[in-house]
Design a binder for these strands. Structure first.
Lengths: 131, 131
DNA sequence: GGTTAATATAAGTCACAACTTATTTAGGAG
DNA sequence: CTCCTAAATAAGTTGTGACTTATATTAACC
């Protein structure tokens, strides 16, 4: 799960999509158009990126007629925040405890559902590991 | 810069390295050994991962005799924190303003140096974009 | 000096992910 | 029903990044 999220954010196009959605919901077409202008990629490419973001729980979709309206899903973002919290003390800051507490509260509040996701191509993978 | 950071964290092995370093500094050899056990990869592979993490400002290195002691560099982590702050209001949480403020303070306090970094393989790339 | 140990770099291989074009699915309008 | 538009899926190509083995660097020790 955490792997899926970071994997999704590893791509600049997908980060750009999230930034666009950060300004408000948008139909897939508008996203595809913006990406075509900025990266020169096609509609299917945009659609595939959106699929990855969906699988990572980083965007929400809502059908509206033939349009698919996308928005930011904080569930995925919270996963990152939680992961960063591991290093809270490395930040060596007085208020870190509070920051960690924020992440904890968020974790409880998080949505549930969602299927989809991930293959894990790499060979071995001992227990108790992030991935 | 942000691209380099997310790119680095996109790999489970590199995330695992950071988690290891989160428990305290370690020489490259110890890291390579742990990765060999958990992922079955070689010493050069580990070294290459460390190079990527260095380029992203996610780890610090210090020579000690023939050993290279690695540690977490909060500079890289702060980049993520800052990026997440874009979506602070999406979290729709009362304390978000505070959380954002934490990121801001951290930004000021950040170390300077470091060269290295990134190619940008994708074709077009309009101005004002994350990557 | 030579030898061993710790790490980094070089060079080459291969799987995969990010694209492409073509097609399918599905909803609204005439 | 047919036609158009919006979006997703299918199938195929290709660049690149994560590996490999082999070698170079650098420091310590004898």
């Amino acid at each position: 799960m955490i792997g899926t999220v970071f994997d999704a954010l590893g791509d600049p196009v997908r980060r750009r999509i999230l930034e666009l959605l950060g300004d408000g919901e948008r139909p897939a077409g508008a996203i595809a158009h913006a990406l075509h202008l900025q990266f020169g990629i096609s509609q299917p490419a945009a659609s595939q990126h959106l699929r990855v973001l969906r699988g990572a729980g980083l965007v929400t979709v809502r059908a509206e007629g033939t349009r698919r309206i996308y928005g930011v899903d904080t569930a995925g973002l919270a996963v990152i925040q939680d992961w960063l919290a591991r290093f809270a003390d490395a930040f060596a800051q007085p208020l870190d405890a509070l920051e960690t507490e924020l992440a904890r509260g968020r974790r409880e509040r998080r949505r549930t559902g969602r299927a989809d996701a991930a293959r894990q191509p790499r060979p071995a993978d001992a227990p108790g590991v992030t991935a």
